[in-house]
Design a protein around this nucleic acid. Structure first.
Length: 147
RNA sequence: CCAGUCGGCCGGGCGGCCGCGAGGCUUUUUCAAGGCUUCGAGGAAAGUCCGGGCUCCAUGGAGAGACGGUGGCGGCUAACGGCCGCCGGGGGCGACCCCAGGGAAAGUGCCACAGAAAAGAUACCGCCGGGCAUCGCCCGGUAAGGGUGAAAAGGUGCGGCAAGAGCGCACCGCGUCGCUGGCAACAGUGAUGGCAGGGCAAACCCCGCCGGGAGCAAGACCGAAUAGGGAUGGCGCGCGCCGCAAGGCGCAGGAGGCUCCGCUCCAGCCGUCCGGGUUGGUUGCAGGAGGCUCGGCGCAAGCCGGGUCCCAGAUGAAUGGCCGCCACGUUCCGCCGCGAGGCGGGGCCAUACAGAACCCGGCUUACAGGCCGACUGGAUAU
RNA sequence: GGGGGCGUAGCCAAGUGGUUAAGGCCGGCUGCUCAUAACAGUCUUAUCGGGGGUUCGAGUCCCUCCGCCCCUA
């Protein structure tokens, strides 16, 4: 059902109607803190558990963490907006695997070329989806069976 | 044209594709989603250094004390440590700039080193007089000169004197008492004193004035979940002494958002009623000491009146991402020109400082580049 | 958002307004030792976080800015 909706969107417009759902609760971030991680020049991506009760079409939820060490308020805002836009741009390359992902921004995210940033996001999501799936098969079978 | 002073303002523009938040309208049978449309960061939104609004708590002594802040005078303001005007002092050729700028005869304290002496004065070298008399020593007078210091007990000149000294006089400074001008700070001026009263109060302090406390995570409401909390009414009141008893006297614990005094409340039992912390949501929450503009008053800060506009409301936190063109800037290369400069092409992710979090008024700090006005000192030309 | 505190040498730190700013660790050199450590002696290292003001004089007092830490949910 979700797949049909997704494909229908594709047919109408050149880019899919990807709706970005962000993590809002501190507990969600803490759940991802010790999960598998994938680092790129602009950020580190952390993988949390399966998405919550009402997952979006793609089943992915993203959380953005930009600490005060990175820069002042203007720079932090800019980094968060670029990363969010990069996630949107990379959405059509995402695997359909429900999970929470936390993006821990680095200062270099403000300088990095936007196409590279988009490629990094796609690379990281793909890698973490496969690694998470591999891990869940061996350790936590309950999470997979729910899917 | 060069150098400078002061005040005010701007701080990219247009367009394309894809998005975000909020409001309104609308479509589908509902849940929900879609469509259209409007609006969507700053001059400092920053630092949080002051002042208010607003909310809750306290509110008896319009108490006293402590603590903190503030400090020329007058005005503006809701208020201020802000702003305007003026006065006084200092700096600059000038436009102009800077100043915590009350009190040092209420008291206490400090003034290192140097110096004779650092504050009820004193005398190292000197100067003068007298005595003894071989260099010189002793006694007295003096504070003009030398020297020390950031600062040396009014300054300069003349007289005077043994030498000197406000000892006398003139001018300046200072104090006191008048007069004139000014709302006042203060200024001017006259008389008089005869030099007393060094500096530091961003040392303690004194004087005047101001300040109750906490903060929108204040506060109010709703829902879920849990059972240790709360409100109210009645009865009752800890310890000691006196008394047969009723009761009387004395002492004490905790709370009331700095302390004290005063005052009030509380402790245990029973009845009735309501549901705290925590988490989520709604509200507070944007029509305001509001913006723009016109007229009047005022030197100005500002005030009064008319017209007109509605102009951000997020909450892991919207206002963006990627491009194109233009303006401006900067830099490099080539060509032209004696030169100022001009033309063409390229680079700078081609824009500084920086992101509302309840709201206003200020202050302070950061800031690429640019614009406007007034004025000052030079230079040149007429 | 609100409240509190700190900043002195590479590190830890003392410092009533008054000489050239204590002390310890570290470091350099010398001695001792075959050598090292320990020990003894000796020496160096300070824009007192930056700027401005008050004062004759500021690490100290006042103002302002910067950086860091803690508390409060």
């Amino acid at each position: 059902m979700t797949d049909e909706k997704f494909q229908g969107g594709m047919a109408e417009k050149p880019s899919p109607p990807f709706q970005l759902v962000t993590l809002k609760k501190r507990a969600d971030f803490k759940a991802a803190a010790n999960g598998p991680r994938f680092s790129t020049p602009g950020f580190t991506m952390l993988r949390g558990p399966e998405a919550g009760a009402v997952p979006p079409a793609t089943g992915l939820r993203f959380g953005f963490t930009v600490t005060k060490k990175v820069g002042n308020a203007v720079e932090r805002n800019r980094i968060r907006r670029r990363l969010r836009e990069a996630v949107r741009a990379a959405a059509d390359r995402f695997p359909r695997h429900p999970m929470d992902l936390v993006i821990l921004a680095r200062r270099t995210a403000i300088e990095r070329d936007f196409p590279d940033l988009v490629a990094d996001i796609a690379r990281a999501v793909d890698a973490l989806a496969r690694r998470g799936a591999h891990k869940s098969r061996s350790s936590a079978a309950g999470e997979v069976s729910e899917n």
